[in-house]
Design a protein around this nucleic acid. Sequence first.
DNA 1: TTTTATTTTGTAATGATTACAAATTTGAAA
DNA 2: TTTCAAATTTGTAATCATTACAAAATAAAA
Lengths: 151, 151
Amino acid sequence: MNAVDTAVKLLQAKKIRPSLTRIHILAYLLSHPIHPTVDQIYQALLPQIPTLSKTTVYNTLDLLLENKLVKLVGVEQREKHYDANTKDHGHFFCRICEKIYDFSTPAAEIEAPEIKGFQIEVKNVSYSGVCSDCRHKNKHKEDEYEKFEGN
Amino acid sequence: MNAVDTAVKLLQAKKIRPSLTRIHILAYLLSHPIHPTVDQIYQALLPQIPTLSKTTVYNTLDLLLENKLVKLVGVEQREKHYDANTKDHGHFFCRICEKIYDFSTPAAEIEAPEIKGFQIEVKNVSYSGVCSDCRHKNKHKEDEYEKFEGN
DNA sequence: TTTTATTTTGTAATGATTACAAATTTGAAA
DNA sequence: TTTCAAATTTGTAATCATTACAAAATAAAA
């Protein structure tokens, strides 16, 4: 099934009217798992929807967020990044190439006693550092930062 | 050992000159594990340092961050929150009372194959939802949001 | 149609953070 | 001390992603 059809189905399942704009935005996120920003989405769709407003992108993403059709990528960047992959997974942000990588998080729930009985609605696991590619490309620069020591 | 002495030692260990301002800011964070914002730190220290500038708070926190004496709390709020507890732990943000709770994360490293060989410098685990207190206080409002379903 | 609700749009605020240069303080050398 | 250079602190002015808001456009209902 293509991204447009998937988007329509997802919207309908949440009883959101599948307007052209909403379909485009959700389909773009589904077919471009690059964790785009509002501006990236806006620029990408402008040729197809010349009347598109950036406010609409903001509004639509808020709507999709509320309905859990997209997630915020918990990477501490100036601009927010969005992800239509709503399955639990982690994100790694490389501070050199600024790419965001997905990684799987353990299936086993974290069962911390401190938050027992809390209603968990959003989970976010994100790391940052230097990805493998950039480590190899910048061997000489690597010692600027020491390897992170857990605890 | 009191927070001021600890702050001085931590700064010296990183070869940062322990100026009055730096000591105050780090000691405040150490003795107030409430994950304060820049403004909260600024307001709290103003009586003691009447000449304090908010820019200095920003500058000092940047310096402490670079030296890993404080961490950014990965909670998606308008303002950034800081934490002098640099041990690995998670944060839970309650969207009702807006308190940030600490919780322990599993000692076992997440060993995701997708980021094997990556240089991990910063880790962030943060959840949000409704804390236990607010769930009980707002029983009637609870059904506005369904419980988060993992995956 | 006409009416009403929904969606989209454009413009103007908001406000946390950053840039930057001046002012102040500190520490080392003489 | 006194002098001088470096480090630190400060205030003001930008920046710029996001939000507020009301008007315009569109779609559905009557």
